[in-house]
Structure formats: C-alpha cells, structure tokens
Write a protein that binds this DNA or RNA. Structure first.
Lengths: 147, 147
DNA sequence: TTCATTTCTCAAGTTAACTTGAGATCAAGA
DNA sequence: TCTTGATCTCAAGTTAACTTGAGAAATGAA
C-alpha cells in the first residue's frame, strides 16, 4: 500500500518551494489526495507533472496556458507512456511556434542593423503590424510573448 | 524651432497607451522635455526608442533589462546611426542566447518524447540541473526566462 | 473669447505567480 | 510519551508592468 510522497518530498525532488506546490494546487496543476491527518500525498507522476510545468514556464508559457495541457492526463492514476507522448507532442508544436516568432524578430532586427534604423518608413521593427495582446491590466511580458 | 511630438502623438505612432509612455518615463526609458505649460514634448527618435522597447519585450526581456541598453543613446539629441548600430548589435547577442536556450529545451523535450518520459532517472526535463532564477517574490516567468 | 480636448499629477487598483506570517495540528524518532 | 520538525489553513504582502480615476490646468480650433 503506497503512502505516496509528502509535499516536502516533492519539493525536494523538483526544486520547487513547498508554497509554490500548494499554490499550483489552487490552479489544478496537481491534485494530491489527503491522508488521515489531512496532509497532502502525491504520486510519483506528480514529479513529472511539475517538471513539465517548469519547462513550459521557462519557455514563456503562463500557468493558464499550461494547465489545459495537463487536463489530458489522468488525475490520480499513473499516466501511460501514450498520455505523455500525446501532450509532449502538442507542447513541442507550441515551442516551435515560439522559436519561429523569436527568429522572425531577430531577422527584423538584422534588417534594422543594416539600415541603421534611420529610415523610419522602411524599418521592420518600427511598424508594429501585429496587434500584441493588450487586453486587461497586469504584466505585459507574459501575454505579449504569445505567438 | 521644432515643437516636438505630444504624448498623444507618440502614443498614436507607437500604438502604446498614453499611460504606458508616462510610466516608461518613471523608468528612464524616455526623457521628454517640457514646454511652457508643463506638457511633455518628445523627439522623433523616441518613436524608435519605444519600438525598440516593444520589440525587446516581445522577446521576453524585462524593462529592467532593456533600460540599460538605452543608456547608450543620447538623451535629447538625435542618436546617430552608429549609436543605434551599437546597441542593436548587443541586443542581437541577447536574442541569440535566448533562442539557443529555447532550442536546448526543445531538444531535451524531444528526448523526452522518445523515452515516453517514463524512465525518471534518464529524463533530461526531469533533472533541473540549472538553478533557475528564484530570488525575491513576484512573477516568475519574467526572470526564469533569462538564459 | 469660448470650450471641448488633451495633458498634468498623484494615488490607488489590477494580474500573475508566488512568498511570508500566524496560529494550530500532525508525524515520528529518542 | 515527548518533543522537534513538517504540514495545515487563511490572510496579506510582493514585483512587474501597467491602468484607472479624480481634480486641475493647458491647448487650440471656431
């Protein structure tokens, strides 16, 4: 009968703070069960879940964007290889899009260096043709990063 | 005698909100002069300054990271071609580093898809060897994105 | 000169992603 | 059993990057 990991164990294994893991629970990123005393108990697969979240965050994805991906995994059973392959493949597409966006911007900047950025009419950086996400308030980097 | 652009003009030309431009001033990103009535007047080069900021933000750079780059430009005189080339070139290096970081992560994920992410010991995503920036409080995406 | 815009300042609100603190309870080795 | 350390909950604080609102003054076309 597996007892599962405590929140401290999980924190040690992932490098995350205990408070962060509790916070993720409020965002449905992990769904631990409780023992008799009311303490959280996690499965081994939660290590991978959180690793996935950390990787995605590094790529600039917000928790709101990450959470839906995890919906494809079973809540309390160990996910199968097929489960992970499925969401990883989708994730890879998002990464590719994000890299493509960066490269496009880099190329625009290259053009800008060439022209010395002095001819305002023709500078690619100067004309923000793509309406960046400007809805609501709060930090901008997170949203404006989306492709 | 050039009157310069009003804050409304600048907002229209850049697509930024007036409030955002005022906010940037508190971060030393633009340094407008004042007319008799105390209203802000901007130079044409401020359009480019702000375009640069917007582009950098899209790449995931924070204002704190961007501001120092702009220190290399003259405050009230029009920057020369050499000025812009200099900071653009530096900026390009940062972009390259950021893209490299994303590609590395993508490749790690590729390995993960191959193994189905089931062998915890060998999964590259699973082992967060690189201590991501975890100082202070506040949003994480911004900082953790740095190379 | 009039008056609708635009701008000004300054304080306070907002969102994301967490952290910190307080007071209480649970777990487990000596 | 005792006691130290880990967890629990819940409220409030923090940072970044802005926005919103209020009340007052400047602009500029008619």
């Amino acid at each position: 009968m597996p007892q599962g990991l405590t929140i401290g164990d999980l924190a040690a294994r992932t490098g995350l703070a205990v408070s962060a893991i509790r916070f993720y629970e409020t965002h449905d990123i992990v769904k631990p069960v409780r023992n008799q005393g009311g303490h959280r108990r996690y499965g081994k697969s939660d290590i991978r879940r959180l690793s996935f979240v950390m990787a995605a965050q590094k790529l600039g994805f917000s928790l709101a964007e990450i959470a839906p991906h995890l919906k494809g995994l079973p809540d309390h059973k160990a996910p199968t290889k097929a489960d992970w392959t499925r969401i990883s493949t989708q994730f890879r597409k998002d990464i590719a899009a994000r890299i493509a966006g960066l490269e496009e911007l880099r190329d625009k900047l290259d053009g800008c260096i060439g022209c010395g950025c002095l001819s305002l009419k023709s500078c690619a950086l100067y004309n923000p043709e793509d309406a960046l996400g400007t809805e609501g308030t709060g930090p901008r980097n997170l949203k404006s990063f989306a492709p």
